[in-house]
Write a protein that binds this DNA or RNA. Structure first.
Length: 569
RNA sequence: CGGGGCGUAGCGUAGUGGCUAACGCACGUGCUUUGGGAGCACGAGACCGUGGGUUCGAAUCCCGCCGCCCCGACCA
């Protein structure tokens, strides 16, 4: 491909609203353009990268026996009503009516369509297990897109689905995907870590997320340095030692003016935060007020809280008026007298004796509050977040926290969707059984962005070989001084195209500086410079973009590279 | 949806009540130049996001709306 013909342009200055390196560089180097919030066009270079990533995924999916299909982006709403998600999912799912007035939705995922397909195709246990996948556009009207290509509203996802006879079969399909994903991210040059995760709105019994470590990541990962524990902080298991046993002492009201935070309260009383109880208030989707009690040195984990109370429609922090209306005082909130609210107490807080809790009265706290004696817990569960330094549940070593970007996820769904859509098979036993499903996703654009995050330097992108839009970037310098430069460059360019390994060829009438800067910005793995100087030195100057290693190689060796994809050793 | 920021040429910016809206890069033409974002000359390109208001006069002040970015809420 001649740069003089390529539909692109590079930018010398960073676009002012791009902050993440991947966003900045993909814009500057001419891979993508923004259309609106969370909406991007892929230019030819960007699309080629997407195709390369797709191909890696396709090969690994095929390898585990997953078969490629394609399902629609527009679905009848009725299908989503039957699984209950039409009403469960909020405004992030786009809805419209077709010309006949039928309710339709724009796909944000494809479990419904797959279950519908399974009910049509699968009749007998002899057809199971079965796995299908496709690359398809999803639209999720996110409250807020961010980070360039990291979080967008419209994107292509590789989503695959497994269909099995039973849980054991699902387990096999699930771990086959786990292994395939591990290979995929390795091949893509992504150092992705699989972490145990929440099943969220997908439902199901087990899930992992594949996380690319990145300081700008939206998720917090809990990792053990020995490698034997990795979980999303939303679900990471707490292992904290019990506090020393103490005989319950008498409750005592104490005046504590201006101590609306745990830090100020602990300082005022001259005690550690672990001797206090913190009350946090939430409201469920159906309007119930929740009083969550954790120890002062811990933080409420909303995911765990939602799971503990099985709150449909999630929870949100309560507003001051809502807390007051329930007869409690923000800043001095207390489970003692939390009338009419659902009291959820953290397991460790419940085992901690004689805590200082609020008095539900401004300026006052209560000493020596004990669960069971002074107030009753409706639910006792682990509802706090792991903190840096907590013990690994496997080996006891201190845990560390890292930020990550979710590039893939795998879910054991079970029969939630096949039950709803009546997708059953006839077993060996002659009975009809629901098909057991799993679902597995990889975001294409997000993966591309994460690859750039992991493979760039101050000059630009440095694509791994496996995903580069072109293997090499040919730069011709001094074309007016020596006609043979153009002649050889043209020949190499044609040779590559004829061999089915097209390369980029900078045939523009630009100064050497511009050509070199653009080549480094655009990031092809090999930069081939041909000039009177290189010819005098014996051939073509070959630069490895990622490392900057440079050598001059005979033209014949470059021809081998262009024909076969690798230099002779 | 809450908080903050920003909308001036393709990109980056200046101009914050008063002449024909300025500069750099990019773009076009010509000449020179060709190993690290070249030089000279000429040129094209802007309803200053949008609607209203204040004023003799608005890119500039006021109000509404729209859009984008960041933080939070949210997130398969």
């Amino acid at each position: 491909m001649r740069l003089s013909q390529l539909f692109f342009t590079t930018l010398r200055d960073d676009p002012s609203d791009a902050e993440m390196p991947s966003h900045r560089l993909l814009l500057r180097a001419g891979y993508v353009r923004q259309l609106g919030a969370g909406l991007y066009s892929l230019l030819p270079l960007g699309l080629r990268v997407n195709h390369r990533v797709e191909q890696v995924i396709r090969e690994e999916m095929d390898r585990i026996g997953c078969q490629e299909v394609e399902m629609p982006v527009v679905h009848p709403a009725d299908l989503w009503r039957r699984t209950g998600r039409y009403d469960l999912i909020g405004p992030e799912m786009a809805r419209f009516k077709d010309r006949a007035g039928r309710d339709m939705v724009i796909a944000m995922t494809h479990e419904e369509v797959v279950a519908h397909l399974l009910s049509d195709i699968i009749r007998s246990y002899r057809q199971l297990p079965a796995m299908i996948y496709h690359f398809q556009t999803k639209f999720r009207d996110e409250p807020r897109s961010r980070g360039g290509l990291i979080r967008v509203r419209e994107f292509v996802m590789k989503d695959s689905y497994s269909a099995d006879r039973d849980e054991a079969g699902l387990d096999t399909s699930y771990w086959a995907h786990h292994a395939a994903y591990t290979r995929i991210f390795q091949r893509l040059g992504l150092d992705a870590i699989a972490v145990a995760s929440d099943v969220g709105m997908m439902g199901g019994s087990q899930a992992h997320e594949f996380m690319a470590l990145n300081p700008a990541g939206e998720d917090v990962l809990v990792l053990c340095e020995s490698g034997d524990y990795a979980a999303n902080r939303q679900v990471a298991v707490i292992t904290r030692p019990d506090p020393a046993a103490e005989a319950p002492a008498a409750v005592e009201e104490v005046e504590t003016p201006g101590t609306t935070t745990i830090a100020s309260l602990a300082a005022f009383l001259g005690i550690g935060p672990e001797r206090t109880a913190k009350a946090a208030f939430f409201v469920t989707g159906d309007g119930r007020l929740i009083t969550a009690i954790v120890r002062g040195d811990h933080e409420v984990n909303e995911t765990k809280l939602v799971n503990a109370i099985a709150a449909k429609g999630g929870i949100r922090p309560a507003q001051v008026e809502e807390i007051r209306n329930a007869g409690m005082e923000p800043g001095y909130g207390s489970p003692v007298g939390a009338h009419g609210t659902l009291v959820v107490v953290d397991a460790l807080a419940a085992r901690s004796p004689n805590l200082v809790a609020g008095a539900n009265r401004a300026g006052f706290h209560l000493r020596n509050v004990n669960v069971g004696r002074d107030f009753s817990a409706d639910i006792v569960a682990d509802i706090t977040s792991v903190m840096e330094g907590d013990s690994c549940p496997t080996c006891g070593q201190p845990l560390i926290l890292r930020s990550g970007i979710e590039v893939g996820n795998i879910f054991k769904l079970g029969t939630k969707y096949t039950d709803a859509l009546d997708a059953k098979y006839l077993g060996e036993d002659g009975e009809r059984h629901p098909i057991v499903m799993g679902s597995y996703g990889i975001g294409l654009g997000r993966s591309v962005a994460c690859i750039v995050e992991a493979h760039h330097d101050s000059k630009g992108i440095a694509w791994p070989d496996e995903v580069a839009p072109y293997a090499a970037h040919l730069v011709a310098i001094g074309t007016n001084k020596d006609a043979s430069v153009v002649e050889i460059a043209e020949r190499l360019h044609a040779l590559a195209a004829d061999s089915g390994r097209e390369i980029l060829y900078d045939d523009r009438e630009e100064s050497p500086g511009v050509k070199f800067k653009d080549a480094e910005l655009m990031g092809m793995p090999w930069i081939l410079t041909i000039s009177p100087r290189s010819l005098a030195a014996g051939g073509v100057e070959v630069t490895r973009r990622a490392t900057g290693e440079r050598s001059t190689r005979p033209i014949a060796e470059v021809e081998v590279f262009l024909r076969e994809g690798a230099f002779p050793v």
